[in-house]
């Protein structure tokens, strides 16, 4: 089955990101295709490369980046939600006149159209949030 995933909460404070990661891993292991993971609301905070969680804790952002690299998964961050919350790639930082960017490897910033397209293209769109 072709699956799309939406993540609506940031890492650590809510379990949504952990659940979404575990769902994606489980789906891949069963041979399903992940069409896209779309990050919205505080879910965009999954895509900053700067978190430094305690060493004995899981690193959620790194887990996403690793998953994207290993399985070629399209991780898309909503641009409108990202701009509100200070998530920038190099192009956006330049465009907005900011002095740096913080996007983690494997993520890309794009529009809400990518969410609607995922809803159309995938057999199921699975939403993780509160």
């Amino acid at each position: 089955m072709k699956l799309a995933v939406m993540v609506n909460e940031g890492p650590y404070q809510h379990q949504s990101a952990d659940s979404a990661l575990q769902f994606v891993r489980a789906a891949l292991s069963k041979g399903h295709e992940i069409f896209r993971v779309f990050f919205y609301h505080d879910g965009v905070n999954n895509s900053t490369r700067f978190p430094v969680p305690p060493q004995d804790d899981r690193n959620i952002v790194d887990s996403w980046s690793k998953l994207a690299a290993e399985h070629n998964i399209d991780l898309v961050v909503c641009i409108a939600a990202a701009q509100r919350r200070g998530i920038l790639d190099a192009d956006e930082a330049k465009r907005q006149g900011k002095d740096g960017n913080n996007i983690a490897p494997g993520f890309r910033i794009s529009g809400l159209g990518q969410l609607i397209e995922a809803g159309i293209q995938a057999d199921r769109l699975v939403v993780f949030g509160d």
Binding site: I79, S110, G113, Q114, E117, Q121
Partner: peptide, 10 residues
Amino acid sequence: EPWEDDEVEG
């Protein structure tokens, strides 16, 4: 805007 050009047909 860059996010306005991703319409799909179908």
